Computed example of a mutant assay.
Amino acid sequence: MTDTRPLPSAPPALHVLGALALELRGDAPVAHVALAQAQVGELAALVARDLAKFSPEAATLELVTVGAHYDPVEVLRPGWPLHHELDQLAARAPRDGGLKTGGRVIAFGAHEDRLPGNLAPSPDFAGGPLRLVPLLLGGDADAVARVGDAFERDLLETGMAGADTALAAQHAFGLQIEHARYLTVHDLAAMIAMQYEHAGLGALWPILETALLEPDGEHWLDAPPEPLVHYAQREARIAMFETSAWKQRYAADADCSDPQVRERLSRQHDQFQARQRQMAAVLQAHAVAVTFVHCPSTQADVRADL
């Protein structure tokens, strides 16, 4: 992804946002989620070399990365906070006062088992089959734009990491890698959207996509039998219906004089509430603020409550 919008609290700048994606093998253990500073340089140099193969002009840009791996929900968050943190830390890194013909590589590692800033991976999201090493390219705006366009066009199809890069990551992190490839954050979003579709969460993706790509935008999920969700003002508001309001919206034609129908509706209402909790948990994992809004209203004006 080439992001022309400013990172939060940062001056306007153009960056290429991406990641080295590590697809792990089965239930093999992971020895390390973060590398010591002394270990990071070799892997970062291999990443820089790989990126320059995909677009030679990438070698003229500054590469910022970290010796740690994260779950997709930690990367796909409004404002791209991991990439923002890398940018902020890199801005404070010492710079060579001399002229350079190529871009520099900045790689952050752990000191006494602690990563700098807010880069620590969350243990709540450990253990997934896809782990991501975030990376950020910056520099001359025209060069960044050209590299970003090339990556968006080609990386998903041609972005396999070098065999030595995959082996270096496998050895350093102590994990078993099936595939290692580079993705822009747009590529990653498309991949996760497909996974959510297969997991039965496709209806929620447009809300997440709006939060990621247009955080000040607005989107409705208004498609019964799904919960009613309104994303606006950087918050997802989920309608919490009173029982009568839920029936009016989702089962208006049901004959509640029949005990079997009432029992079926009770089960459906329980399932509906579980679906609400599931959607809220997914949104919160992506750091989207969630508010449950009590909605006693009739179907005609329930959207006004959100």
Rank of each mutant, 00 (worst) to 15 (best):
A93I: 00
P56S: 06
Q284F: 01
E42L: 08
S266Y: 12
Q88K: 12
T2P: 00
A19M: 07
L20H: 07
V16T: 11
M194C: 01
L228E: 09
R25Q: 12
L46H: 08
G138V: 00
L20A: 12
H219E: 14
D164M: 05
L86E: 09
A126Y: 12
H15F: 12
V147R: 03
G200K: 11
A150K: 07
H219Y: 08
D253K: 11
G174Q: 05
P259C: 06
L20T: 09
A232D: 06
L306P: 04
P56M: 01
W80S: 08
P29E: 09
H286I: 08
V229F: 08
R49A: 13
L86R: 03
Q233A: 15
F272Q: 06
A107C: 06
A58S: 12
F292S: 08
L130P: 03
V293Q: 07
C295V: 15
A180S: 14
L188E: 04
A199S: 13
E42V: 07
D164I: 01
T243E: 15
T60A: 15
R234Q: 15
P224W: 04
L130Q: 06
A36L: 02
W205G: 03
I106K: 01
R104C: 04
A172Q: 10
Y196R: 15
E242P: 00
L76W: 09
Q176C: 05
P224D: 04
M160W: 09
V144Q: 07
A58G: 05
P259Q: 07
N118R: 14
E178W: 02
D270Y: 06
V133A: 08
G109H: 04
A44L: 04
R262V: 13
A232C: 11
H230W: 15
E263Q: 14
L132N: 09
A289Q: 14
P224N: 03
D50H: 02
A190S: 12
V144P: 09
D154G: 05
R153K: 14
A300K: 13
L135Y: 12
